[in-house]
Design a protein around this nucleic acid. Structure first.
Length: 299
DNA sequence: AGCGAGCCCTGCGCGC
DNA sequence: TGCGCGCAGGGCTCGC
């Protein structure tokens, strides 16, 4: 499920439940979900038991819960199919449950943080926090300039107030690659995946393979603005209210609750010009675009 | 530097 | 009904 808006929905849903909560139990049902944890399963559980979470923070598609007084955080990445769900302790286990973390919340009582992941491309891990390179807050959710070492190489996302537009444009100009490759490069700009890349490129009328170095400043500015617009709109639509009874912070509503203009629309009419949207193989995935509105040569 | 390929995996929906 | 296949929103590493 997860690009930035979906992960933000999860973060916002988790925040009120986990902040100030104490971990009371840890159960790892599939050790493969801890692939990115530096140590054995027992170590993961040991680090978490008794931990108190300071909040829920996100940068790009990475999510983490800082552990009070430890200099560490529980880090989650959802991969292609991961979900973090809040459950009542007595609820029957979700299908594809990989990690189950019991917490005691000051306001909401006992809850379960359930990490569900079909393909196991996602992961949970306990990682050390390191200072951010620029000394600014690491991500959305907490004013703390420390970031998990696993996330330190990930660029800020376009909704981050500390995102540096000028540095982004300069980096873009230095690149010798196609614009979609650049958008998907999480070390250049984070949070954008295949869906929102296609949607932003459609909105900015850019071909996915347009060379970054030839992208004019106005077109790059337009593209970044479209990225922000699309991400922000999806975040607004994905917002889930917290319900202490039976909580589901699944961000699934994000993608499909609003109409997509390009992604998955192959064969259907381009909403702008009426000609058919095309799907083309790209980076072991697909690109969806309008060959008329999004031509390789600038018009 | 950046690309392509390969790999990590499971389950769904579709066509036959 | 059952089977095989293609498909899926990510990220990391490696060799070139």
């Amino acid at each position: 499920m997860p690009e930035l808006p979906e992960v933000e929905t999860v973060r916002a849903g988790l925040e009120p439940a986990v902040t100030g909560s104490t971990v009371t139990s840890v159960s790892v049902l599939d050790a493969r979900s801890l692939r990115r944890h530096d140590g054995p399963v027992e170590d993961f559980a040991d680090q978490l038991l008794g931990a108190i979470f300071d909040g829920a923070v996100r940068r790009g598609k990475f999510l983490w819960l800082p552990i009070a007084g430890s200099g560490r955080a529980l880090v989650a990445h959802l991969g292609m199919s991961g979900q973090v769900l809040l459950r009542a302790p007595a609820a029957s286990p979700d299908r594809l449950l990989r990690v189950r973390i019991g917490i005691e919340s000051p306001q909401h009582g006992e809850l379960v943080v359930a990490f569900v992941d079909q393909r196991i491309f996602g992961s949970m891990s306990v990682r050390d926090l390191v200072p951010t390179a620029d000394g600014r807050a690491a991500g959305r959710g907490l004013d703390d300039a420390r970031i998990p070492d696993q996330v330190a190489h990930i660029a800020r996302d376009p909704l981050d107030p500390a995102f540096d537009d000028r540095a982004f444009f300069a980096a873009l100009r230095r690149r010798r690659t196609g614009i979609k490759r650049a958008l998907l490069d999480q070390t250049l700009v984070s949070g954008i995946g295949n869906i929102y890349a296609d949607e932003a490129l459609w909105a900015a009328r850019l071909h996915f393979d347009a060379p970054t170095e030839t992208l004019s400043r106005p077109r790059a500015t337009t593209l970044l603005a479209e990225v922000r617009l699309i991400l922000a709109r999806a975040v607004a639509e994905g917002g889930t209210s917290f319900d202490a009874q039976y909580v589901n912070v699944n961000g699934a509503s994000g993608y499909f609750s609003h109409s997509l203009n390009a992604y998955g629309q192959q064969g259907r009419a381009c909403p702008r010009c009426g000609r058919p949207i095309v799907r083309e193989a790209f980076m072991n995935r697909n690109s969806h675009f309008c060959p008329y509105c999004q031509r390789l040569r600038a018009r």
